[in-house]
């Protein structure tokens, strides 16, 4: 599989200041902490983890809405992590982001036609008239009525709005689509429609996608590989089927066990996440999951577990992984 995007050691630390000027306190949140993964051509990579683990931050870093603290993002042989804004235009055409909340990501003062044509406007593609015609085609390509182009976002349902956001992301014919929880603000009934639309887009356009979600069953349905994050770090990374069948990391197991199973009789022994989460100002040389971990060993609070290969194409950051040998 050809690699279209390579992320290495990507970190984002937020420094927040609090208190009055004469008693300033600083605290560092390591929202993304040394994350590495690759995205293959025409692949859907699932990025999962509980709320606050740094999924959106990772997405924002890749499109450079945020500047990384360290690490590299290789796209087409270029490290876009440290390019200045002015030289980012090309990669910004090729990597598009779809936001979680379709109510907030569309400008209420613009018509739908203007919204989907905005990327062309920004990059100076097409004249005003062509833009209007192309916008209608674009709307139709995501299953909307071309007539809608004169309407405003508030006249649409949530699902329709998310289609608009997807259409906008497709306008520049990108290579990579980053979808940040594109369905979490939607009704159950339209979730599947949007997921199917994204699947179709991948098939017909041959693009790659990073699909961010906290819903493991959704990710399982759409992605070939998944990245599991916890408190800014990658816990486990590998092919979807294998991870679901045999998780290597205790955190992944806990996550999988938390998925509701329709038939109670089929429910096996469940690992339940217990205990306090790690304090945000804890040391770096630590496994962030150790206070809650069932399998923790003596040095889990003293050593940072590296992301190591635990099988073919499988990686886990655990000192005591659940590999074949251990089981």
């Amino acid at each position: 599989m050809k690699t279209v995007l390579k992320i290495e050691g990507l970190s984002k630390h937020f420094v927040s200041r609090s208190g009055p000027s004469w008693r300033r306190r600083e605290s560092v949140v390591r929202a993304v902490d040394g994350v590495s993964f690759e995205l293959g051509e025409n692949e859907v990579l699932g990025l999962v983890g509980e709320s606050g683990c740094g999924k959106s931050t990772t997405g924002s870093l890749i499109v450079r809405l945020l500047d990384p603290t360290s690490g590299s993002i290789i796209h087409r042989g270029l490290d876009i992590a440290c390019l200045p804004e002015t030289e980012l235009l090309e990669s910004r055409k090729k990597i598009q982001l779809i936001f979680q909340d379709p109510f907030a990501s569309l400008d209420p003062m613009m018509t739908l036609g203007e919204i989907v044509a905005e990327p062309w406007e920004i990059h100076g593609i097409y004249g005003p008239k062509e833009r209007r015609n192309e916008a209608v085609h674009l709307l139709e390509s995501v299953g909307l009525d071309g007539e809608l182009s004169g309407r405003y976002p508030h006249e649409l349902s949530g699902g329709q709005r998310q289609r608009i956001a997807i259409a906008r992301a497709l306008a520049l014919d990108p290579e990579i689509l980053i979808a940040d929880e594109p369905t979490s603000a939607l009704d159950v009934s339209v979730k599947a429609q949007i997921i199917n639309l994204l699947g179709d887009i991948r098939d017909t356009r041959g693009l790659s996608m990073i699909f961010i979600s906290h819903d493991l069953s959704m990710v399982r349905h759409i992605s070939q590989r998944i990245v599991v994050m916890y408190l800014g770090r990658i816990m486990e990374y590998g092919p979807t089927g294998e991870i679901f069948a045999r998780p290597n990391h205790p955190y992944t197991r806990a996550l999988l066990d938390a998925i509701p199973v329709p038939d109670p009789m089929k429910r096996g022994k469940r690992t339940i996440i217990r205990g306090e989460a790690l304090a945000p100002d804890a040391s770096e040389e630590i496994c962030p999951f150790y206070p809650r971990c069932e399998r923790r060993g003596a040095d889990c609070d003293r050593k940072r577990p590296p992301l190591v290969e635990t099988g073919r194409g499988r990686f886990a950051a655990c000192l005591y992984p659940e590999t074949e040998a251990v089981r």
């Binding site: 924002s60 499109v63 450079r64 809405l65 980012l88 235009l89 910004r92 055409k93 598009q96 982001l97 936001f99 909340d101 907030a104 990501s105 569309l106 400008d107 905005e118 990327p119 920004i122 990059h123 956001a165 906008r168 520049l172």
Partner: peptide, 11 residues
């Protein structure tokens, strides 16, 4: 977010 979206598109 719509401003963020525009920035991500290179505006």
């Amino acid at each position: 977010e719509f401003v963020q979206a525009a920035r991500a598109m290179g505006a």
